[in-house]
Amino acid sequence: MITQTLITQAVAIAEKRAKRPGASVYSGRAMTMIERSLYAAKSSNWLIIISGFVEPVLYLMAFGFGIGQLIGDIQDGSGNPVSYAAYIAPALLATSAMNGALYDATWNVFFKMHFSKVYQVMLSSSLGPMDVALGEISWALIRGATYSVGFMAIAWPLGLVTSAWGLLAIPAATLIAFGFASIGMAITSYMKNFQQMNWVNFFLLPMFLFSGTFFPVSVYPEWIQVIVKALPLCQGVDLVRSLMLGIIDISVLGHIAYFVVMIVLGLSFTTVRLKALFMR
């Protein structure tokens, strides 16, 4: 007597999905990870979340309007005069997006991987590693995008957006956040302890200070310029600055391509790594 295998809802859903290629890695339910993050966010410390947003705003006030008074107008990329605050605002918007994305994609992911072990549990449901990767990265990018929207809400009324192209700075910031979230989670997945995690921070501060944020990259010797321009934040700063100041040329597409590659690489490495860590 062979009894029929029970077809429960969960089974029906999984079997329907199984016909698609890649079903063992991706179930198409990354969204449920975001739902989980929303529940968790309700009880998290809002002060910490807000502080991440406030940081670039403080830089804008201190450098843009403080030191900016001493500097006066400077020339933008195409030779037009622009206030110092308007020059650094796009850079700080890009930084906002980066910070927001990295908070979740680095430290929070590290904690979940090594301490709360929630990924192991998720992977014992019918979710695949790519659902987990995409879900976590999406949540991080939402945070990054939210920070940049908040920053824009301050920069726009202050007259720091001089071109209508500036509206596109929000989707651009979202793309930047996506890129940093992907790479951030991928790198974090290789980190084994807190010391290694601190190296991430050690790298981020100089990148923030020297990526054309507060002064043009052209001040460096040629060979340093090449290195700095290859850094993701510098790419992001250039992209947002072009849009907010309305200096649109082919290089915008180059920056976009840079982030698309970053996203694909980060997502792939994270998926592979989650599989290696929790499904071996």
Partner: peptide
């Protein structure tokens, strides 16, 4: 290769 389908049948 049928991990997700199997896990839909299992409680862990």
């Amino acid at each position: 290769n049928q991990g997700p389908e199997i896990r839909a049948h299992l409680g862990v």
